[in-house]
Each structure stands twice: as C-alpha cells, then as structure tokens.
Computed example of a mutant assay.
Amino acid sequence: MSHSFKHTPHNAITDSGIARVIPCRELDLTDPFKWLVLAVHDMRRAPLHTLLYGALFALVPWFIVYLVKLTGWHLIIMPAIVCFMLIGPFLAAGLYDVSWELEKGHRPSFLHSIKATTRNAVNGWGFAVVLMILMIFWLRVASLIHALYPPYLDETLRDLWPFLILGTGVGVLFSVLLLFISAFTQPILMERKVDLATALLTSVNAVWLNKLPMALWAGIIFTIVVLGFITQFVGFILLMPLLGYATWHAYIDTIETKRARNYV
C-alpha cells in the first residue's frame, strides 16, 4: 500500500539546525488499531520469540515491585511505573528486530534479535543514556515529592491525595516528554545510519504533527501498562510483545522510507 507523506513544514523543530528531520506521513485516527492488528500477526508467526521477550518484560516490573516492598517506600510506585516506561523502549529492540525480519521474509532468530542493539551502537547507547538521565531526574523529583510528605499524617486517602495528585501530574508530564522523544527513535536508530539528534528530532516532529493519533497511541500504551500491572505482570508476557511489534509497525507506517514497505 502506498502512502503520501507530509511536506515537513517549517517549525521550531525543523528549523533548529541541530539535525535534519526525516519527513513523516499524516496519520489517521484509526492507524494505531491497524498497528495492533499487524502486531497480532507477528505474534502468531513468532510465538517462541514472543513468549521469551514477554517473560523478560514481566520480570522487570516484578523486580521493581520487589524493591518497593524491600524498601517499604509506598510512594515509589508511580515513579517505578514511569521508570518501566522509560526502560521499555530500549529493551524492545529485540522485538523490533523480530518484526523487521518477518517483514523481510526471513525467519527470526534469537541471536539476530539480541544483536539488534549493536546496530548503530554508539547512537543507540546514547539514546539509552538519554533515557537513563530522564529516569534519574524523575526519581529525584519523586524523592522531593516524598520528602514533602509530613511524617505525622496518616497513610489514608484523605491525607495522601494532594501528594498523589502532584505525583501523578508530574508523572504525566514526564510521560508526554517520553512519548515525544521515544515514539520512533529506537526503530530509526536500528534501521538507519543516522545520528541520535536526527532520530530524536524526527520522533518529536512526527508526534507533534500527528497529535491526535499519537495521543490515542499513548492511551493504548498506558492501558496496556495498566492491564499488565492489574494482572500482577503476568499479562505482560503477551501485552509487551504486542506493544513492541505494534511500535515497529507504527514506525514503518509513519516515517518516510525510500521504498515501499511490505506490511502497510
């Protein structure tokens, strides 16, 4: 299927002079659901890879909750969720590789998917550092919010709600920032020999020009994460591969390519 791409307009992103911005397609509001359908097809074609990476994604939040119980710091739950969302895009590189191999008509292999993070390694690890800085900064903000909680108050909803609202509001801001910088950055770095600034600005520009579809996509991501936590992380075994494969399809459907892709 052929796509028409936007002529990238002049704005603060494209005129920044930091790096070039790869043009993007104007998305429809229904496109995120198409990405999920394509992801289900990938899950059926690579069930073993799906279960292995799903188990890994289930272990990460389990370990986070274990640390919460170990420290007894109940207000770390919200920052822990955000941290999980920060780490997720980088860990999903193996899933992106599986979808990419299927798109090319190849048989995916674990070794090939593990090596996915070595493609464009310098910029890929640079992106990991950016995510780590965001994570550390958010944890420091969360620590400050926790420090403001008076020790003499009871741990009741009535006493906690001002801090829960504040923490949630800050978490939403960080999540929006995360969406802008990570929506397409990792897939771009995996497939293209571009610098980190180009990948980041391309992702920011694509999200900015497709606010409503990407807002819906963000809502789907949030719902998947919530469902995973409600099921005590067991749901992540299937939900996170679904999200990883769908993210790859979101990338190849959104960012301009030199030749037509096979899946969309």
Rank of each mutant, 00 (worst) to 15 (best):
V176P: 05
K69C: 00
Y263V: 15
E155P: 00
F84C: 00
L148F: 14
I77K: 04
R107H: 08
P150I: 11
F63D: 01
Q232L: 14
A116E: 09
L29N: 09
E103D: 14
S182C: 09
F63H: 01
V122E: 10
L173P: 01
A19K: 01
D159R: 04
R45N: 13
F90G: 08
I252Y: 07
A93L: 05
P241W: 09
P9S: 10
K6M: 15
N123T: 02
H146P: 00
L157G: 12
D15M: 15
K69R: 10
N262C: 02
S109L: 00
Y251H: 14
E256T: 03
E101L: 06
L200R: 04
R140H: 06
M132Q: 04
L196C: 12
I221N: 08
R140T: 10
D253Y: 11
L209P: 00
P108T: 11
N120F: 02
G167A: 07
G219M: 07
E26A: 15
V129R: 06
L243D: 05
Q232Y: 13
A260Q: 12
T118L: 14
V170P: 01
P89M: 03
I76K: 04
C83Q: 04
I114K: 09
R44M: 12
D154S: 12
D97T: 04
D159G: 15
A93S: 03
W62R: 07
